[in-house]
Amino acid sequence: MIKLENVNKTFGDHPALADINTEFKEHQTTVIVGPSGSGKSTLLRSLNLLEHPESGQYHFDDETIDFSKPITSKTVLELRRKTGMVFQDYNLFPHLTVVKNVMEGPIQVLKQSSADAKKTALDLLDKVGLADKAESFPSQLSGGQQQRVAIARSLAMNPEYILLDEPTSALDPELEAGVLRVLLELAQEKDSMIIVTHNLEFARAVADKILFVENGKILFDGTPAEFFKQPTQRIADFLAAMTFTTISDKAES
């Protein structure tokens, strides 16, 4: 289980995370929502130490990291092996073929043999529906296909948690659907996932728990049922604004 206690992170004098306290349970999907600039990415990136908050406690299973102290590179590497990250703009390695992208971590970090890594990689590519693209380069794939490769790449490390930062925000709706289908499947298999998304419909379908973040604070931490029943005025406004965005998007197209 992941647990954060009193976590703070500032950029300059701007508080990006202000006294964050929450838990991410195993085998659950947590969805983080909130307006732009509210600190969602900072929160997610703190979980695999791409960001280093100034203070607070980070518990991962029995391990505890005190953010106010320097973190050894050994701790950083161990923690990153237990978490996988999927980025908004995929960040595939362009100089490696699709299958080699997926094999890179298992071979270099887990020291698997090339044959074992390849077998796992091909299975995972099959799972995300891209077995036939194994030998292509990322530049030859659509955005949605690239994102599915990125998901396979993070699954190949067999992480305890998969962190996804707006995995479908750069995609057209048709391509988005393919990626969401893969994520829904992972959620049904009870993988532990933490997803930042603006897609509320998807959040409602997949979330076991929702965090609503604004100005670096968690304003809601509970079930999707409670969240969509509009517990506070602020969340009602947020939901209304998001719905309006969806309507105006449709009007434009």
Binding site: N48, L50, S73, L77, R80, R81, T83, G84, M85, F87, D89, N91, L92, F93, P94, H95, E104, G105, Q108, V109, A150, R153, S154, M157
Partner: peptide, 26 residues
């Protein structure tokens, strides 16, 4: 791009591995 470093760090690579395997070839 910075994203290449972050993606490589995310799969648990050390700085030397990131440089040798991901950054320097590109």
């Amino acid at each position: 791009p910075q994203g290449q470093w972050e993606a490589a760090y995310s799969i648990g690579m050390t700085k030397t591995q990131v440089l040798r395997r991901i950054i320097l070839p590109q």
